[in-house]
Design a binder for these strands. Structure first.
Length: 474
RNA sequence: GCUCCUAUGGUCUAGUGGUUAGGACGCGGCCCUUUCAAGGCUAAAACCCGGGUUCGAGUCCCGGUAGGAGCACCA
């Protein structure tokens, strides 16, 4: 039975990278008919954003990623919030202390050599407290110093297999005696993730590549406890197109931000899945359910991938076009201007669906329906349609009574009547259509042609706009 | 600084010793057409560098270079 987990810390929003990690973990579990677990990693008391857990629920829900077990969905392996598991960590810390794989450290933060500031890492530095006798420790305790618990890293080298990166070997001298239990009684990620993953029977650990070099430390912990290691799937990072890292602070959008920017959740999920993975054939359009089928963790890439808004936009367009008319209409509705009344909005949706790449395009696409923009007469001149000011004047003048007499007002009837007129008058269809479309839209381009716009605007408004066009033509 | 990882067009990628190096986004052109889209066709554009191994390397090995990550009482 596969069991994977998504273990975010509650920061208040879903990073793009987190979304992909959650997605992959979900896909790996689903396609094996396994379980996908949500666990909240809130062991940093300084970094707890209230309401942030709710943001995680919302994000996953928006993405369509359903978890089988989580804080609000007990599966018998809870609690699923680390701050509620403190006694468990204390118990296992004691065990590892007893077995000698960890020790109390009474050093204060300032006592530590400043490794990074100087740029000089002290090779093989070992904490002085690792060799403290029981007696010495007792004295420190008596002095009221609250210790941390540190892992005792043994000599040697550590090797493990990762499904993405293959075999990784690291010399233990590169690993330091990391803190397992902080002085506030909370575990560090380094300890909690191992204890929880084991206790929650996680079989596959999917996480960012930043954990690759510390994985040996976790493996040593598994060994110290006599537990089996999980399988590892470390993911390359998603970066910006300019090569920098994606950061909320630098203005890069979160998953929720992207949705607000007009991208469909399913398009974002699809796009993000493709950042570092491909199906092995040339498909690119995937709905979540298709991803479950197609995903293969052995096809995950090793190198970082840049997030391209251009490609996301294209894929978003693909997803918009794949929506059924009703589905698109529901997405589009909130983007229609208030002033857009008296129109068959469903028909309008049908007109713009194929032309919408991003939902935020919509107001700009439909604005002229609500109000005819100002435009100059020379907009009637269009070489390709063989439309001139003179031809436009002739067409609009002739078309006014034809429209006025037309009883059946729809795209087909309008097109038929205009085509007949064009033939009779010796015009190309385009020469007739261009001035009408221009008069109706006041724009160089519009979603839909002359007859589609006329059908939607209705007879009265159509006649009004054509008259207005005629005025401009003098 | 030390360690680990990575390296195919601008970007996402296919490729597991023999290919005209394939696809997608974007960009240009053409077709279609009731403007614009959509759709179809098409062009330009890539194997980081240097050594090996081999009859033959984008593919294997070594060394550079470049980029990323880690080295917290953060996750």
């Amino acid at each position: 039975m596969f069991r994977t987990r998504f273990a975010p810390s509650p920061t208040g929003y879903m990073h793009i990278g987190n979304l992909r990690t959650a997605l992959y973990a979900y896909l790996i579990a689903r396609q094996a008919d396994g379980k996908f677990i949500l666990r909240i990693e809130d062991t940093d008391q300084n970094r707890n954003v209230p309401e942030a857990v709710q943001a995680i629920y919302n994000g996953l829900k928006l993405a369509g990623i359903e978890y089988d077990e989580g804080p609000d969905k007990d599966g018998g392996f809870g609690p699923y919030v680390q701050s509620q598991r403190l006694p468990i960590y204390a118990e296992y810390a004691q065990k590892i202390l007893d077995s000698g794989h960890a020790y109390y450290c009474f050093c204060q933060k300032e006592d530590k050599p400043a490794l990074e500031e100087t740029g000089e890492r002290v090779q093989g530095y070992r904490d002085p407290c690792r060799s403290l006798s029981e007696e010495e420790a007792r004295v420190k305790f008596a002095q009221g110093i609250v210790p941390v618990v540190r892992q005792r890293i043994p000599e040697g080298t550590s090797t493990f297999y990762d499904h993405v990166y293959g075999e990784i070997t690291i010399d233990n001298s590169q690993l330091d005696d990391q803190v397992l239990l902080k002085s506030d009684g909370f575990p560090t990620y380094n300890f909690a993730n191992v204890v929880d993953d084991h206790l929650m029977a996680i079989t596959h650990v999917i996480r960012g590549q930043e954990y690759l070099t510390s994985t040996p430390k976790y493996n040593l912990l598994y060994e110290a406890f006599g537990w089996n290691r999980p399988e590892y799937i470390h993911l390359p990072h998603i970066i910006r197109e300019d090569g920098g890292k994606l950061s909320k602070r630098a203005g890069d959008p979160s998953f929720e931000d992207l949705v607000r920017m007009g991208y469909l959740p399913q398009a974002i999920v699809n796009y993000v899945a493709l950042l570092g993975w491909n199906p092995g054939d040339e498909r690119e359009f995937f709905l979540l359910a298709d991803l479950v089928e197609a995903f293969d963790m052995n096809r995950i890439n090793k190198s970082n991938a840049a997030f391209s808004f251009d490609k996301l936009r294209w894929l978003n367009g693909e997803h918009i076009r794949a929506l059924d008319p009703e589905g698109f209409h529901n997405f589009a509705l909130p983007y229609y201007p208030q002033s857009l009344t008296g129109f068959d909005l469903r028909q309008l949706s049908a007109l713009i669906q194929i032309r919408t790449e991003n939902l935020t395009d919509i107001p700009g696409l439909v604005g002229f329906f609500a109000e005819l923009p100002e435009y100059e007469a020379d907009l009637f001149v269009h070489q390709k349609s063989k439309s001139t000011l003179e031809s436009s004047r002739m067409v609009l003048e002739a078309v006014l009574p034809i429209f006025d007499a037309l009883d059946e007002w729809n795209n087909e009837s309008l097109f038929a009547v205009l085509k007949t007129f064009a033939n009779k008058a010796g015009f190309k269809v385009g020469t007739v259509m261009w001035p009408i479309r221009t008069a109706l839209s006041g724009q160089e381009t519009s979603p839909g042609g002359a007859t589609e716009l006329a059908a939607l605007l209705g007879k009265e408004e159509t006649l009004r706009r054509i008259s207005l066009g005629l005025e401009k033509l003098g």
